[in-house]
């Protein structure tokens, strides 16, 4: 019960022990973010959330389903607007106010944020290579892209990205429908890599995969973060994976941040009780 004191409005801490990570300016700055899904019974999915994410961080957002994890990620690139969500507050990505961005600015912003979905969101009928090339659309001329004539170098990059996530060359021409779930998610990651992202947002990327494949995919994220220093935020509901891969863990419950700590500072048992427990201590 002592945790209760910590939970409300936990202000993000600066982690000075993170070596090699620039502390100067956060890449993502969220202030008082509230997201409401209107309707007959409006749902407040996020309630006054504030966060700073610094370049190179590897953040896991933990919480049960319905805690607001997806909404948080989908608010950052305003995908939540597809579900008619009302987003209030401030989000700064790389110094740009996301919520005030025009359509054109939004597209530009999105092109720097790689988004990875739980259901992979590949176009089943298109070949693997084209699914990957889709990641470069924002920077390929409109006519070229409509005709499907991608620049040579982009094709080369797509092939490299695919090989890097573990899809060998002979499979690049296959239809995405023929891939297994784990392979589809690899294509999803390759698609994000094509964007040369400054930030990767992954919404439950391994929830539909078996435990072994889930670890393989999580290792890909880890490696990308370590090799290239791409800031990564991953939503996970599985506590085992959360503790295995997370470096900084943000706990969400009922749309509020109840935890924001480096992994070393977290007491695993009380954390699980607080995040996943059914006790009514949170309310």
């Amino acid at each position: 019960m002592g945790l209760e004191a910590l939970s409300p409005f936990c202000i993000p801490l600066l982690y000075s022990f993170k070596i090699g990570v620039s502390m100067a300016t956060p890449i993502l700055r969220i202030r008082n973010l509230t997201v409401i899904y209107p309707g007959v019974h409006p749902v407040k999915a996020l309630d006054n959330v504030s966060l700073d994410i610094y370049p190179g961080e590897f953040v896991v957002v933990a919480g049960v389903s319905g805690s607001g994890k997806s909404t948080l990620l989908r608010a950052i690139n305003r995908l939540a607007e597809n579900d008619h969500a009302r987003i209030e507050g401030e989000i700064y990505f790389d110094g740009v106010n996301v919520l005030k961005a025009s359509r054109r600015q939004l597209r530009e912003l999105r092109s720097h944020i790689g988004f990875i979905f739980q259901e992979y969101n590949v176009v089943e009928r298109l070949p693997v290579l084209t699914n990957t090339l889709v990641g470069s659309l924002a920077h390929v001329g409109l006519l070229r892209s409509l005709l499907g004539r991608f620049p040579r170098e982009q094709i080369e990059r797509a092939r490299q990205a695919l090989v890097r996530v573990g899809i060998p060359q002979p499979r690049h021409g296959d239809r995405a429908a023929r891939l297994s779930g784990g392979q589809k998610q690899r294509v999803g990651i390759a698609r994000a890599l094509m964007q040369k992202p400054k930030l990767i947002l992954a919404d439950e990327p391994v929830a539909s995969l078996d435990p072994i494949t889930a670890n393989v995919v999580m290792n890909i994220f880890k490696k990308i973060n370590e090799d290239e220093g791409i800031t990564t935020i991953i939503n996970l509901h599985d506590p085992v994976l959360t503790f295995k891969y997370g470096k900084r863990i943000i706990g969400l419950k009922g749309g509020r941040i109840i935890y924001d700590k480096p992994i070393s500072a977290i007491n695993r048992e009380t954390f699980e009780e607080d995040i996943y427990g059914t006790g009514d201590s949170g309310d």
Partner: peptide, 28 residues
């Protein structure tokens, strides 16, 4: 709508979304 969102999230334009996420689904 998932592929459409994937393209939106990478900053594709409406026409590009139509060409790469909508058309491949409906044309066959």
């Amino acid at each position: 709508k998932e592929p459409v969102e994937a393209l939106q999230s990478s900053g594709a334009s409406r026409l590009q979304i139509f060409r790469y996420a909508v058309l491949p689904q409906v044309l066959p």
